[in-house]
Design a protein around this nucleic acid. Structure first.
Lengths: 112, 112
DNA sequence: ACATAATGCAACCATGGAGTTGCACTCGGT
DNA sequence: ACCGAGTGCAACTCCATGGTTGCATTATGT
């Protein structure tokens, strides 16, 4: 992508990008089972704690996880409602396409 | 059996990756309105025909578009049903997370 | 108060993928 | 038979980003 400065990718694609990384997706799934901190996750994964922290920052930026301070640690949880909302939006978009394309196809065959 | 929520070489993330690029997403949206060929799309976008062709290959690989030969051109259409299916799957996953996390939270507060 | 576990920040490297140009091939219509 | 539109393949550049290490900072529990 060659967008120079103000590369403002649509919010939609930002979310997809967040979900597109394998490690990040595994972290999210893990947080869907129970909350955890960056350090805690680091001991369960094979990547460094800093890598995990970056992933969490990305996920939090598009609200796929929420964080909460407890003691000296930052505890993260998956925001299932957010994912669900994205999913339902996708469903709606896909349905719209099918509806539209079906109409076009029928119109092309009608004047017979 | 490809559903057990902990299968790794995730087909899921492949789809996300396909949707994560701004240009590709715009192409998909365009194809959601009406079918078009690579060359046709190239005249509507600011990128080269080859770039478009690559995007179409990616989209077709994860079945987000379908192609059909007509005359000497390859005509692509958006597969709305595929997008909808992905969307509904996401919705389900998100709901599962919320349900699970709510149960944990309640369990932590119960024996008080 | 102090040791320690946790997070935060920065510089750096390496890979992948988006985009380009150039050229070869293949049909279809007149 | 031919010209050209449409496609396919390949080599190359560039940069965004996932990953690393090292160090600074914060703050908790005893």
């Amino acid at each position: 992508m060659q967008h120079t400065e103000s590369d403002q990718a649509s919010e939609t694609t930002r979310v997809f990008a967040a979900l597109a990384d394998e490690t990040r997706w595994r972290i999210l799934q893990r947080l869907g089972r129970s909350p955890a901190s960056a350090s805690g996750l680091a001991s369960e994964f094979t990547v460094s704690r800093q890598a995990i922290a970056k992933h969490l920052a990305v996920l939090e930026a598009c609200e796929l996880v929420t964080s909460e301070r407890v003691g000296r640690e930052l505890r993260f949880s998956a925001a299932g409602s957010r994912l669900s909302a994205v999913g339902r939006a996708l469903d709606a978009v896909g349905s719209g396409w099918d509806r539209r394309l079906a109409a076009i196809k029928e119109a092309a065959e009608r004047p017979r």
